[in-house]
Write a protein that binds this DNA or RNA. Structure first.
Lengths: 223, 223
DNA sequence: TTGCATTTCAAACACTTGTATGAAACTATC
DNA sequence: GATAGTTTCATACAAGTGTTTGAAATGCAA
């Protein structure tokens, strides 16, 4: 366990290559060539290719989740145990959006790696994501505390839509830029966060006076 | 040219297998075995594996786009050239949601195939999706006609968020069910459509009339 | 029928993939 | 400095991939 040099060289080379070219067409041979280590080193240090990918993703994923929960806790403490719904959404989507978009994302391989992981969805990553439910439940709980009257289903739909907007913005960043011909400023990360938060809040607050029947948020006859 | 039996057997076997097991681990040999045709038939009839996938996706994709535009045109004609913003969103997300969710999606391989295509993102499909910008521009144009005063960027963000909610709902269907422990009724497709439409409308209308609580929405994005 | 183009077929081709092996090179402890 | 444990290395392995080939079968027109 002396230097760990080989191990970390593999990790950083793999992250960079996956970030640049995607999981689909990066082989172990590409990685070890880029890391200047022997092919067998991957299996020696990580066991398998999938475990290497899993370790990469878990590391970044834990960091983001930690950041999210810190922001959430700070918001709840500032509000005496009950955070504003906008602060909750900000804690949910802020770290992810800042991590993957933003000026740092140009140079940060970590950010580009997480974008790839969000786009491609390879088995080992998918397995990890499926365990993320517990983490999201903490946000659902905070939302319940913030909006005690709200129907359970509305809480989850609100959470779901907030994540939808954040992740879709990350995934389809390029397409949105092309579609809007540059009119949507994808570099103004804080502006994007506030936009997503604002819509998420409206989605949840909009139905407030109405009943819990979900289909009638806008009273328009179904066709 | 005679019977086309082999060709269509390949198409339907491929669609079913891809729908069931994803693009990642379905080989040409799996497909030809399931279709009871010879391995070389794929390259003979389609040229390559990627072209087979592309043909599958293009077919389904064109059908959805046609349906979308039909609904849009109907809504604009009913409104005398200017459709309500809710009708535009309904035309945008309705066909996709109905196609991929809904009771038919249980049995329909076409629906499950499109869900896979939405989740996995393999090169030939990605190439086709990139050409879809023109199609979306038609909706942007309709939105401009419907809301003449609106800022261009807001139009595109509205379009983007509507697609985000629709696609994320399709993609993360299972996770949402698990997270909400069944509280979010993913079988009530019409209800989901209305929910997405309602939020999309609010996202766009909210910035203008209301200057309510967390409304840093328009203030931030100068342009 | 004969002739010709289309379609099917079994087989092989040419690679690439992740993984395993066993010897060599290290490193630290005694 | 010998020894035991760890790490590196070149190399081989086994399996699977999409694609190509050239001959056989089939369909269709004259």
């Amino acid at each position: 366990m002396a230097s760990d040099h080989t191990r970390s060289a593999i990790l950083s080379a793999a992250e960079r290559l996956y970030a640049d070219r995607g999981f689909g067409d990066v082989t172990l041979r590409d990685i070890v060539a880029s890391a200047n280590v022997n092919l067998a080193a991957v299996n020696y240090h990580f066991g398998s290719k999938d475990e290497l990918i899993a370790e990469l993703f878990v590391t970044r994923s834990l960091a983001t989740n930690r950041e999210r929960l810190n922001e959430l806790k700070a918001a709840e403490e500032a509000g005496g145990g009950r955070a504003g719904i906008d602060a909750i959404f900000r804690a949910l989507v802020g770290p992810t959006l800042r991590g993957c978009l933003g000026p740092s994302s140009e140079g940060s391989t970590a950010a580009r790696f997480m974008i790839r992981a969000s786009i491609e969805s390879v088995p080992p990553i998918r397995r990890i994501k499926n365990r993320e439910v517990d983490h999201l439940r903490k946000f659902a709980a905070a939302m319940r505390r913030s909006l005690p009257g709200r129907a359970e289903a509305d809480i989850y739909w609100g959470l779901h839509f907030a994540l939808a907007m954040a992740h879709h913005t990350i995934r389809e960043r390029e397409r949105l830029t092309k579609l809007s011909e540059g009119l949507c400023d994808l570099d103004d990360v804080q502006g994007i966060v506030e936009r997503v938060v604002a819509v998420s809040v409206m989605a949840l607050a909009g139905g407030e006076t109405k009943s819990k029947a979900p289909a009638r948020l806008v009273a328009r006859d179904g066709r």
